[in-house]
């Protein structure tokens, strides 16, 4: 639709005799151009716009962009107590959601991997939470969480257990959002871990079994080390998505009660699209990007090194 994918076959049909080195370099650059064109244009343009706006006064309802204000926006945002509270909420949510999702996801993957029959059905049922948008499934979780009409409290009542006010009690509201996120994304982790498990070669495991290694030793020495790249990748992807938490909060609690479940991106949404202060919103976005870059420099280092060592084995 937007840019043609066809790399003319004739161009790459080098006679095999040409020194492989030069054409390798050209070939590798050719391969990444389609993806890089889209990413460069549609990442750098908005980033430049946001950077520019973060140095100006920009109240969208006043129409045109305001004049240059230097670092004032950064001073205001850094001193904004609500901003830091929302950063705290985001970190608290990310840590608990990602840890739960990884542990449960991997456990479910192993559980299903051992199952002899019905793997196909189980796998397709597990995609259900993602089969429709958080805007709709979130709506029905809000219905289930409702203290007057919801099913969760109805069943708890039957068992004579306490019936919490899931979304109204400010002490547990964030945990209700975490539970929804875990419900929606644990199957994602499990499915990818399962794909990783099934792609592992058989030989080493049969050899280990011959010399009677205990399942625990097999797990520790064989399975996990080989699964590490895929699991680490899923961890990184889930963390990036959890830190950008917006949908779950927008549909379940809208940041309420008060601001106890207001994640950073939701506070950014409120500043940018309700108060229309695009200057503060862009400043927070730049600050958020900076924090993520620093964090990922450390987090991604092992994965990147591992990618490049395996690439250079060729």
């Amino acid at each position: 639709m937007s840019q043609s994918m066809s790399i003319p076959a004739s161009q790459t049909r080098r006679p095999a005799t040409m020194s492989a080195g030069m054409s390798d370099r050209w070939f590798s650059i050719l391969l990444i151009t389609p993806a890089m064109v889209v990413i460069l244009v549609f990442a750098l343009l908005p980033l430049a716009y946001a950077l520019d706006v973060s140095f100006r006064f920009a109240d969208l309802t006043r129409g045109r962009l305001g004049d240059f204000v230097g670092l004032d926006n950064y001073r205001i945002v850094l001193a904004d107590e609500a901003f830091w509270k929302s950063v705290g909420v985001t970190l608290q949510f990310t840590v608990s959601a990602v840890v739960l999702e990884m542990v449960l996801g991997i456990a479910i993957a192993f559980l299903i991997n051992g199952a002899t029959a019905g793997k196909g059905i189980i796998r397709s049922l597990m995609v259900l939470p993602l089969a429709t948008s958080a805007a709709v499934t979130g709506l029905f979780w809000r219905y289930l969480y409702d203290t007057q009409f919801g099913l969760i409290n109805y069943f708890l009542g039957l068992l004579h257990l306490p019936q919490p006010n899931w979304l109204g009690d400010y002490t547990i509201a964030l945990w209700s959002v975490v539970l929804f996120d875990v419900w929606q994304w644990t199957p994602f982790v499990a499915l990818i871990a399962l794909a990783g498990l099934q792609a592992l070669p058989k030989e080493p495991f049969e050899a280990a079994e011959l010399d009677g290694a205990s399942t625990f030793r097999v797990l520790r020495t064989l399975t996990f080390p080989m699964l590490k790249p895929v699991l680490f990748l899923v961890l990184v992807l889930r963390t990036i998505d959890s830190v950008r938490l917006y949908d779950a909060v927008a549909v379940l609690t809208r940041g309420g009660p008060g601001t106890t479940t207001e994640s950073m991106t939701f506070y950014l949404y409120r500043t940018g699209l309700k108060l229309f202060r695009m200057d503060y919103a862009s400043t927070m976005a730049v600050f958020f990007l900076y924090a993520m870059l620093v964090a990922s420099l450390f987090a991604l280092a092992p994965l990147l090194k591992q990618f490049s060592t395996r690439a250079s084995e060729g």
């Binding site: 809000r142 969480y145 203290t147 007057q148 009409f149 006010n165 979304l167 109204g168 009690d169 309420g256």
Partner: peptide, 11 residues
């Protein structure tokens, strides 16, 4: 009702 903290007019 406890749900007052989560609903608007339709609730």
């Amino acid at each position: 009702p406890p749900a007052a903290l989560t609903v608007t007019y339709d609730g």
